[in-house]
Design a binder for these strands. Structure first.
Length: 596
RNA sequence: GGUCCGCUAGCUCAGCUGGAUAGAGCAACUGCCUUCUAAGCAGUAGGUCUUAGGUUCGAAUCCUAAGCGGAUCACCA
């Protein structure tokens, strides 16, 4: 039994003995005490006044007295209005610290025997990645790591959208204006090369529309009749028919794009266990349509189109197969859902996709559940909000996107600039310095995108958004580097902090107890982050932890402390903090430096 | 129009699922480097939690309505 349980049980006994009332354990909860009051945990007595039949102050005092007398963990208490603040015994903190410190699998919960797939990134192959993709990729990677830490076996999947009209647009424009350009000949990254022609297509398309309108067509007509669009549509038909020249160009351009994505993924530090390609999956799902008809989950209309009726679930009727027998988006998504299960026998499946597709996934999941899929209850849409710029929403066609490669590069350069300004690269080789800039630049960027609740849309101001001070990645990284310096020195002068015997430590300072208390929260936060699919919970936690450590650091001496037992305890406390920060940051996909 | 989401300090965000005087960071101001890394610490200032009702010992949090902003509702992907 841990100390919290012993207190809760003590409260239960207090109610029995003082008020002659059986209070179920579930109704008793402790909250961390607010900073401005004395104590570590608080029991709110308001809900129990009907039982105690006396004032809040009296109730609190009576229970407090009982706990102080009967529960060893409780050293003292105070009552403010209806709040019973408990001051814990020093031993409780030291025992707790010892327990966490000797845990060799810190931040890793035992296997729960469940398998989960996290699908994220899922780019289109007609243009390079942008800021929105960064949020997606960092989120997906982090959530996958968080689930691993919670004992899941995780498969990271990337469903690449490598076919369709948008790719054909790039291809057509390349045929017209490319002049045989290659990544090698132009020095452009492959994905940027494809993106360049996607933009070219749009420019040409708009010109042709103007032209047609000037010749008397309506805007609507012109949009449909622009020759270059017709060409792209024709190309898509040829692709589907397996036309050799088209397929060969498609393969060529996609291979360039993949090389580009590969470089960006490596830079971002994300990875995948399984790639799916829509060119392989886009015909899947028709057998499920048949199955659904047989099971009468779907129904057919006069023209042969197939629908699902979700009105009883608060949604509409939704098309799952066109009248001509061809697929719509959701057809292949049904097929792919099954494919994922066939490949891995997953218990859960997480889709990291922007919230503009909320409705789509709502429909998809309801269908798969109606069809009785075993993985149905485990389907989850991790729906994240858009990243807005101060100028509004990003639009790739209007050139108002923040390019991922550019942004990462800028972040690294900013990190370099900051570091040099602070004169912190003494003793670094050039290579080490470069590595540090990358760790800091990417750390700042990832932390910035992960610290806000995924569900919410967020604002990114390139001018001022990303700082290196305060509630930022580099702040947490800095705290780690600080501790690393202490550990180096401890090793150097031979302080024994590997010991797990801290019985020689007497009184604890407030900042020490507070630090142990927050360190103790790590596991709980990892669980919470998984339940809510929210890395932001961990980001917030790591900031609080680093903040608390820095307070401790400023408050108390370590190597100037005369008492050996206290000195090695403080080093050990620092070591555990560093370990927690490192592990926690790794769950966000962020590295921490040893020096900065 | 239907459905869904958001609205908290000048700005960007927290607020543990109903508890204390609503918290951080940035920006502003004030202290602290001859002591372990000042990318740090301590402090000051900044709020009608969009509005109006309701639920109760107690509401930023739950309910209803309104306002503003956004997304979505294609035989598009």
């Amino acid at each position: 039994m841990n100390f919290q349980e012993s207190i809760i049980q003590g409260i239960q006994l207090a109610f029995q003995n003082i008020f002659n009332h059986d209070l179920p354990l579930e109704q008793i909860s402790l909250a961390p005490t607010k900073k401005e009051f004395e104590g570590s945990y608080t029991f709110v007595v308001f809900p129990f006044l009907k039982i105690s039949q006396t004032t809040p102050e009296n109730t609190g005092n009576l229970i407090g007295e009982y706990l102080k007398a009967n529960v060893p963990a409780v050293r003292d208490f105070n009552v403010v209005k209806g709040f019973l603040n408990l001051v814990l015994n020093e031993r409780v903190w030291l025992d707790l610290f010892q327990k966490i410190y000797s845990n060799h699998s810190l931040g890793q919960l035992p296997s729960n025997g469940q398998k989960v797939m996290v699908e994220y990134s899922s780019p289109n192959t007609n243009k390079p990645l942008h800021l929105g993709h960064l949020r997606n990729n960092f989120l997906g990677y982090s959530v996958a790591e968080i689930l691993k830490a919670n004992g899941y076996e995780v498969i990271k999947a990337n469903l690449v959208n490598d076919r369709g009209i948008h790719i054909c647009k790039s291809m057509v424009a390349y045929q017209h204006f490319g002049n045989g350009e290659t990544p090698e000949s132009s020095g452009l990254k492959g994905d940027h090369l494809a993106g360049k022609y996607y933009v070219k297509f749009d420019i040409e398309y708009k010109n042709q529309i103007k032209e047609l309108i000037s010749r008397g067509q309506s805007e609507e007509e012109a949009k449909k009749n622009a020759p270059i669009l017709l060409e792209a549509q024709e190309m898509l038909r040829k692709w589907e028919a397996g036309d050799e020249a088209v397929v060969s160009l498609w393969k060529q351009m996609n291979s360039w794009v993949y090389a580009g994505f590969d470089a960006t993924y490596r830079k971002m530090g994300v990875n995948f266990d399984k790639f799916y390609y829509e060119s392989d999956t886009y015909l899947l799902g028709k057998d499920i349509v048949e199955e659904g008809l047989a099971k009468e989950v779907f129904f057919k209309k006069e023209n042969g189109s197939v629908w699902v009726d979700l009105t009883d679930e608060g949604l509409d009727e939704k098309l799952v197969l066109r009248g001509d027998g061809t697929s719509v988006y959701i057809t292949q998504d049904m097929g792919t859902a099954d494919l994922k299960y066939k490949d891995f026998q997953i218990d859960k499946s997480v889709y990291v996709v922007g919230n503009e597709q909320d409705y789509h996934f709502d429909v998809l999941f309801k269908i798969m559940r109606k069809l009785g899929r075993s993985y149905g209850p485990g389907l989850y849409h991790l729906s994240y909000g858009m990243v807005d710029l101060p100028t509004g929403k990003m639009k790739s066609r209007e050139g108002t996107v923040v390019d991922a490669d550019d942004l990462i590069q800028e972040m690294i350069e900013t990190a370099e600039h900051h570091t040099k300004e602070l004169g912190k690269i003494e003793g670094f080789t050039e290579e080490q310095a470069k590595e540090l800039y990358e760790i800091l630049g990417l750390g700042a960027l990832k932390y910035f995108l992960l610290k806000v609740d995924p569900k919410k849309r967020m604002l990114f101001n390139p001018q001022e958004s990303i700082e290196f001070q305060g509630y930022t990645g580099p702040f947490v990284q800095y705290s780690h580097a600080r501790i690393a310096a202490i550990l180096r020195k401890a090793d150097q002068i031979g302080v024994d902090y590997q010991t797990h015997d801290f019985s020689g430590v007497g009184e604890l300072a407030d900042s020490e107890a507070a630090l142990i208390q927050i360190l103790n929260d790590f596991e709980r936060k990892i669980k919470m982050a998984a339940e809510e699919y929210s890395p932001s919970i961990l980001a917030q936690y790591l900031f609080d932890l680093a903040k608390e450590y820095n307070r401790f650091y400023a408050d108390l001496p370590i190597f100037h402390e005369k008492d050996q037992a206290i000195q090695s305890f403080r080093v050990a406390l620092s070591a555990l903090t560093a370990k927690t920060i490192k592990k926690g940051m790794s769950l966000l996909g962020i590295q921490v430096p040893e020096r900065m």
